[in-house]
């Protein structure tokens, strides 16, 4: 799994002096970090450290609620179909939140399939992007379900309601839904916190497979999970980024005493 070449990969996203405010409360404080292409970056830290808040800035989820404010820069190095790379400030007021959500998919803490068939759940994002032809939809739905390691389990019941699936299957369906639109990044917000250990290990295997195809950012409470799936780890505490490094480095030889204390379970 460790890849020595990974540090030379191009940047997919970076945050620079980035802050986020819920009204007057500053939940993310002046964070700067790079996120490399096709790498898995884990954000860890105790509850309330701002890790989920930071993650939800990437697809402008905070815009759904009033009174939130971004400061600083959050850049997505967006690749056009012709191969050229264009930096895009995700949180700039002129950037459309809908465009960012089209480019960056999200998988949530609890499985949240829509009250539709399995097929229509995966096709949802494709339909939003104007894909209408039945054959193209079927092809891309199948690819996405295969990508989420769910195809064999659901191929015979695509027209059935998604709520008939188990929790772990529902979460993989949500991953398929997120992958179907071929996003530039996928955000995982504690994707296994509502799942049992077997379903959790399936999701982790899946994330391991996905790293070759897409840039992944994962927030997790589970430090073993961060150690298992990620290439880079960011440790946050009280809204600040305490340490950011290769995962192996953070877990085996942390640079800051605070990180060492958190990882060894002395608080959090």
């Amino acid at each position: 799994m460790p890849d020595t070449q990974i540090d030379t990969r191009p940047l997919k996203a970076e945050v620079k002096n980035f802050s986020f405010f819920y009204g007057s409360f500053q939940a993310v404080k002046n964070v700067s970090a790079p996120f490399r292409e096709k790498a898995v970056t884990a954000i860890i830290g105790p509850s309330g450290c701002g890790k989920t808040t930071l993650l939800r800035c990437f697809n402008r989820m905070h815009d759904l609620y009033p009174g939130n404010r971004y400061a600083g820069e959050m850049i997505l190095h967006s690749r056009s179909p012709d191969g050229s790379v264009r930096p895009l400030n995700i949180v700039h007021p002129s950037t459309s939140p809908i465009e960012m959500r089209m480019r960056i998919s999200m998988v949530f803490q609890k499985p949240n399939p829509f009250p539709k068939s399995i097929f229509e759940n995966v096709a949802y994002g494709l339909r939003l992007r104007g894909v209408g032809s039945r054959s193209e939809l079927s092809g891309r739905v199948e690819t996405a379900l295969r990508g989420a390691a769910l195809w064999d389990e659901v191929k015979d019941r695509l027209p059935q309601n998604a709520y008939g699936l188990s929790g772990g299957q529902q979460q993989r369906l949500c991953i398929a839904r997120a992958l179907a639109v071929e996003p530039e990044m996928v955000l995982f917000d504690e994707p296994t916190s509502a799942l049992d250990p077997i379903a959790t290990s399936k999701i982790e295997e899946l994330i391991d497979d996905l790293r070759e195809r897409v840039t992944i950012l994962i927030v997790t409470h589970n430090m073993q999970q961060a150690a298992r799936v990620s290439d880079y780890t960011a440790f946050m505490y009280l809204g600040e980024l305490v340490e950011y490094d290769r995962t192996a480095k953070v877990f085996q030889n942390p640079g800051k005493p605070l990180t060492e204390q958190y990882i060894s379970g002395r608080f959090g």
Binding site: F114, P115, Y124
Partner: peptide, 28 residues
Amino acid sequence: PMLLREGSYGMGANRLTTAVRVVFPAAL
């Protein structure tokens, strides 16, 4: 639940689409 709406917005849907295609069937 808001989680369902966030799922729809997160895919890039606007308010009307979310209301008609996700919230409405969920509340059917």
